[in-house]
């Protein structure tokens, strides 16, 4: 069986099953895809949008748009990098002082993977970042990698590098507190109450929307607001419009990913089940030893078989067999 499975396997390069989300530089994460000697340029279109805010030290969002995803990608797994440039090494966003608050999958990675459905050819990936504290000029770049037909060639493509300036915010700028950490994931069928931590804010308005849906307004009571429960796994986005003495500020759209409860079982239960299965398997095999070899069964059950000559009368306890058998 092992030989058959091996013979019928199709060899490919890179990792067609994906590499998992992670904090990776462009060259490290996509060593096969980024290797000019074996990769090919993707036909997909990739673009990166400038940060939603240009205040240094505050939260902002960066979006990478991928379109025209090739239909011949066998696994339809798409890997997306958020990098600071195309140097390949030391190009993760944290090298410039960015802090990843949430990635498109609800984690804190600069490389994420997603499996696109066969009908999807356009996808948007949004990172929420805390920008560097130091004002100045910064750059960001997106990069994608995926497989093709039969995963024979790893495909790769970089977006253009965008440059922009971060400036120091005014002292009285209404803002979210540095201590505020927006939730990134939640379970389905559960409402989410978020308590905002703000600075220099007199009035707050919250807007939320489903992916591609219309914007709704929700009331803020004592600095807290509640987002409705999600019925299915998916994405809900929200943002705060902050008013104060300084210029009004609108936060980036924060993403909240709803997912089904994760698999979880108690350790004791798992170990007990494992031991019970172990003992049960021992018991099953131990029963096998009572089976006599097939050859002997045939030998004894043969209707033509005659007991060879018996010396004397057959005793209840013992008898002697003579003969060639």
């Amino acid at each position: 069986m092992l030989v058959i499975l091996t013979l019928f396997s199709q060899l490919s390069i890179a990792q067609p099953g994906g590499n998992g989300d992670g904090l990776r530089s462009g060259q490290c994460g996509g060593s096969c895809h980024a290797d000019a000697s074996q990769n090919a340029t993707s036909t997909a279109e990739i673009s990166i949008n400038t940060p939603s805010s240009t205040w240094a030290g505050l939260l902002t969002s960066v979006t990478i748009d991928v379109s025209d995803f090739p239909v011949d990608s066998e696994s339809r797994i798409l890997g997306v990098f958020l990098l600071i440039d195309n140097s390949g090494a030391q190009d993760r966003v944290m090298y410039d002082g960015w802090e990843i608050i949430s990635d498109p999958n609800g984690g804190v990675n600069n490389y994420v993977e997603t499996r696109l459905s066969s009908s999807t050819d356009t996808k948007q990936f949004t990172w929420i970042l805390k920008s560097p504290e130091t004002p100045g000029t910064y750059s960001l770049m997106g990069s994608i990698q995926h497989g093709g037909e039969g995963n024979q060639v790893p495909f790769h493509k970089n977006s253009e590098i965008i440059y922009f300036s971060l400036v120091s915010p005014p002292d009285n700028l209404p803002r979210l507190s540095e201590n505020f950490e927006p939730p990134t994931t939640r379970l389905i069928n559960e409402q989410t109450t978020i308590t905002l931590l703000t600075e220099d804010v007199n009035h707050t308005q919250i807007e939320w929307r489903l992916e591609g849906g219309q914007t709704q307004v929700v009331e803020v009571v004592n600095g807290s607001f509640t987002l409705p429960a999600a019925i299915n796994p998916g994405l809900i986005e929200w943002r705060a419009i902050l008013a104060g003495e300084g210029p009004n500020q609108t936060t980036p759209w924060f993403q909240l990913i709803a997912h089904e409860p994760l698999f979880s079982v108690a350790s004791s239960s798992m170990y007990f089940q494992g031991i019970a299965l172990l003992i049960f398997c021992i018991g099953i095999v131990r029963r096998v030893k009572n089976f006599e070899p097939r050859e002997k069964e045939t030998w004894i059950q043969d209707p033509n078989f005659a007991i060879p000559q018996v010396n004397g009368e057959m005793s209840e306890h013992s008898f002697e067999l003579r003969g060639d058998f």
Binding site: S264, G274, I275, L277, L278, C281, I284, V285
Partner: peptide
Amino acid sequence: EGNVMLFNKFLLSCAAIGLSVGLLW
């Protein structure tokens, strides 16, 4: 305890140990 695949791996390993012990016994 937190991953289906690892949970199955653990149980399959336990079953294999049980069968092995029985066979050697």
